[in-house]
Design a protein around this nucleic acid. Structure first.
Lengths: 206, 206
DNA sequence: TAGATTGTTAATCGATTAACAATC
DNA sequence: TAGATTGTTAATCGATTAACAATC
């Protein structure tokens, strides 16, 4: 039932959760692996297989209770609680992240934002006062923050990373276009829009 | 040598390209599949296998000429030219995208930005005047834009998608947290930070 | 030459899919 | 009951890795 679930399976669970949240919002009480699969472009067999790593959540002949399965997935992903996150870098991107409306409803709250620019430190962004980079380690520790979003230029990203790790962060969403070096226990996910664009331009040759 | 290269291989090429651009900037003239692999956390065998889909780019005993391999990958990915892109939505995120310094050096140029809010239409963002959504189809056609970045709320994303497709767009970078429905010939890549965060929170249970 | 690294083949590994008994 | 859908096993498919001849 669970001796280390493949990471590729874990990576699909948030997609299932997102689809279920939407179904629940639409007032759909019950769904099936076929319906979910059609919505996500994934085979029904794969959805059932993925879920089977964690237990049995459906009923033969009927399908899945939407709220129940959503709850269970949230529990499995550890998002049946709220998380506070830090934003590092208060440029365009950092500001967009600090002001993004999509985090709160899904359980993530930007609690603090840092920058090094004296002209930016002390200014307000979406209700938060920008703090100086020097205070990062102590602030992160004091707030027990475990998740950071890094939105600084590539040249600064590794040194910033070292400091958020020193501050106790164990998960990093990295927007800088470089590969970060971190201890084994720290998780990193990268978002580089150019990587995605270049993936698509391959197919744009006519 | 090439009867339809797996998409998973195509997805890695931009990472190779990024690493090579960095090596070139650092003045490194020659590299090897081992060095590249170490830098990317990928096996050297995989890099050689991936490249072999497109031809022979190295020399036994020596490795790869960095500038040459970079050029070849750029050509394969069709980024040996510049691309103009449109940003749809001039909220926090749209503004961050329009102002992002990381696009230009890698061959992508935001040429136009749209919004529906009368208070925002006509204002300037990074040298661009925000255009009204109604003009989207004709503007995209007039500019022959083939790539759009969608940065509107989930509720508006599908209708906006229908219009960029009507405007001739063939590749969409979608920041809205929903699955877009598009014709077969249109490519979509999704960026939803919450999906990445939830992927990591799974591992944050202690 | 001796050492290194490519490109490629074959072996391995793991993920996806098909199929179906169980059962609601 | 008849129809539907789950959870799971076995088969298939595809991707990764190991190994090595070729050769710089």
């Amino acid at each position: 039932m669970s001796d280390s679930v493949p990471d590729i399976v874990i990576g699909r669970l948030p997609l299932y959760l997102r689809a279920l949240a939407r179904l629940e919002q639409d007032g759909v009480p019950i769904t099936s692996s076929h319906e979910l699969g059609a919505q996500l472009g994934i085979s029904s067999a794969q959805i059932r297989k993925d879920l089977s790593h964690f237990g049995e959540f459906g009923k033969q002949g009927t399908g899945y209770q939407v709220p129940y399965l959503r709850e269970q997935l949230a529990r499995i992903l550890c998002v049946d609680r709220d998380w506070t996150v830090a934003v590092i870098g208060a440029g365009h991107l950092g500001r967009a992240l600090a002001g993004y409306k999509g985090f709160g409803p899904r359980g993530f709250h930007v609690d603090v934002i840092f920058d090094n620019d004296p002209d930016i430190i002390g200014t307000q962004i979406g209700g938060l006062v920008v703090k100086p980079g020097e205070s990062m380690v102590e602030e992160l520790r004091a707030r027990r923050i475990e998740i950071a979003m890094i939105a600084v230029p590539a040249a600064a990203a590794q040194s910033v990373t070292d400091r958020v790790v020193a501050g106790g962060v164990r998960a990093i969403l990295n927007y800088a276009p470089i590969r970060l070096v971190v201890p084994d226990y720290v998780h990193v996910q990268d978002i580089d829009p150019v990587i995605h664009l270049q993936h698509m331009t391959y197919y744009l040759r006519t």
